[in-house]
């Protein structure tokens, strides 16, 4: 399952990332925020318009907004 399909609430672990779907600076920005292989995340909110874009995910004690296009590059497994 990719991250954009994760339901709101449950925690999941990022098990694979298709870096080719992400621009270099985006990938670097995500990694700097700790959104990387092995990270535990949960979806907290979805945007209102256009099919729930962007997404707000919680990682550690942080909330980070990102687009669905980024989430689509990440495979997650619910914990």
């Amino acid at each position: 399952m990719t991250l954009d399909h994760l339901p709101l609430g449950p925690r999941a672990r990022i098990v694979a990332i298709d870096w080719s779907l992400l621009a270099d600076d985006e990938a670097q920005r995500l990694r700097a925020l700790g959104i990387d292989l092995g990270a535990q995340v949960a979806l907290a909110h979805r945007g209102v318009f256009g099919g729930g874009d962007p997404l707000a995910l919680t990682i550690g004690r942080m909330t980070v907004a990102l687009r669905r296009s980024h989430a689509r590059a990440m495979q997650v497994e619910e914990i």
Binding site: V64, A65, L66
Partner: peptide, 10 residues
């Protein structure tokens, strides 16, 4: 250029 995306700490 590539859409810059939106990655932002809340």
């Amino acid at each position: 250029g590539a859409a810059s995306g939106f990655i932002m700490e809340l």
